[in-house]
Design a binder for these strands. Sequence first.
RNA 1: GGGCACGUAGCUCAGUCCGGAUAGAGCGUCGGACUUCUAAUCCGACGGCCGUGGGUUCGAAUCCCAUCGUGCCCGCCA
Length: 595
Amino acid sequence: MFLSLRTEAEEALTEALSALSLPTGDLGLEEPPEDVGAILASSVAFRLAGEVGKAPPEVAGELAETIDVADYDYLASVGTQGPYVNFHASDAYYEKTLEAAREDSYGRLEPTGREVVVEHTSANPTGPVHVGRARNPIIGDSIARLLDFAGNDVDRHYYVNDAGRQMAVFTWAYETFDESELPEPDREKADYELVRYYRKGNAVLEDGDEEEVEAAEAEIASIMQGLENGDEDAYERVERVVDTVLGGMRESLSRLPAEFDEFVKETRFIRDGSVDDLVTRLKGLDEAVYEEDAWQLDLPDFEKNLVFLRSDGTSLYTTRDLAHHEWKFEEYDHAVTVLGEDHKLQATQLAAALDLLGNDTDQLDSVFYSYVNLPEGKMSTRAGTGVDLDDLLDEAVARAREEVEVRMDDRIRNDDLSEDDIDRIARQVGIGAVRYDIVSKQPSKAITFEWDRALNFEAQSAPYVQYVHARTCGILSEAQRASENRAAEPRDGEADREPGTVDPALLDSPEERDLIEVIGRFPAVIESAAEDRQPHQIATYTRDFAETFNAFYRERQVLTDDEALTAARLALVAASRHTIANALSVLGVEAPESM
RNA sequence: GGGCACGUAGCUCAGUCCGGAUAGAGCGUCGGACUUCUAAUCCGACGGCCGUGGGUUCGAAUCCCAUCGUGCCCGCCA
């Protein structure tokens, strides 16, 4: 509804400007500060003052007078405050907003018909997911949810780097070492068990004796050649390692939760011949050069050449990724990729090469995030430094459980949480807190991981917002219980009133109006966040929402003796519940019904 | 050396793309509110040369230039 209101304000302003023969290029429409009563405002008068030769407040006044709100449904009045033109919403606006938000799916935008692929995580399957990379699945999954909620048809892809040197090293190590030479795994889980081979292998390559290293390198090279030649045996050897490790990683990721529609292996593009075709096309480009036995692309605007075929004839990651992207462009209208900031240059080169190959690179969007570091430095799978995602999530749930138990004693609400409830709440709150902490920040900002900060359950965290949802559920179930009691002893006149009818005019206090306004903004927030691929905007909104709801909760008793008033406020609470539940769902944070 | 990000209260962050109303939150500190629809909540106080210097503008945290600090990248790795 806010979107319609904004459209009306735009129209009204444009018409008024035209009527006064003023330019309509920049309407200066904005959301005014909280203490200004208006729902929308324009600062256009500032810019026109010079042109008209009058002071801004005077221009604002003329504009306000020119607009006739009778022409619009959602504008009640247009006033001025100094140089600002302020728009006030009509009763119809509040009524329609409340009506729209009665739907469970409130906030979901109309289908766009666009098919979008969101590729995220795509970590090499070398071992357990650690916190340094955990930003990727959380941001990626939230973007996927956001684009879906904004009306797109979304697929989530994990691009599996199974043809690179790292996997050849891993395969060699797995086949070479005996488990008896390895330390105990940190967990009884495939990725934890296998990463021991990978670490051992890398240690040997680094410090082993010359002969051993030489033999290993020969084996690694033969595996890579085998993959490049489409050798079925090499493929199966690597696949066994890849699929096993990936299986373990998937389990961890699903806890976030981050699920995928498809795991796309890069060997696929070697095996189906598309890499060969691509190499042929690349060689044919004017920018292609053959230097030092390797085929390269002399990209304009880039200092160094991009090698796309090694001197031994094998392809490189970027070569295969080019084929991968052309495939995505064929299958989807739009492709979004979530990448670590260290891939920025590579991503720009990829786009430049795709452009040379005749693709429309507007179809591609990259979102970059900066890695999470430990206070003592970087996390690395190979070196075994870092905090595993599983450990972080376990710790989060354990701490949340402690909180639940501490709070049990001074709970007012007498609803006897069962052991299952405690488990559920601990999981929802603990994992929600981790996820929310990450998704609520701009991806470009650096994060240093600290236990206490990541697991803070206080305000501006998931539990703060989840609590609001639990409150709405508590009120609604209380109302349900009361109405069932009444139904048991029917009173005269009770049947006259439709249970579903509410009179929104009763919701006229500032707290109620503010709450409806915040609810009304939700679809616009979804639209903007989806447009910018910025799920953190939704997190910021949930905090605003929670604050506004809490003010309403503090000042206005919902369940009263006044039935009509109670019905109206219950409708507002239900609308609030849908809004906050959907916002949390876009963030991938669970919405507990009690906590 | 070159390129790209980031720098806002003691700490963690919104706001920056698209310039507008006294720069907003939370944590921490101090002081208040549970016999109530859930206190994981709420109310109040304290706290800011928006890294620094210039410029553009009626107006700059926001745009431009310079500069400092931090991170990332500049491989026939991924």
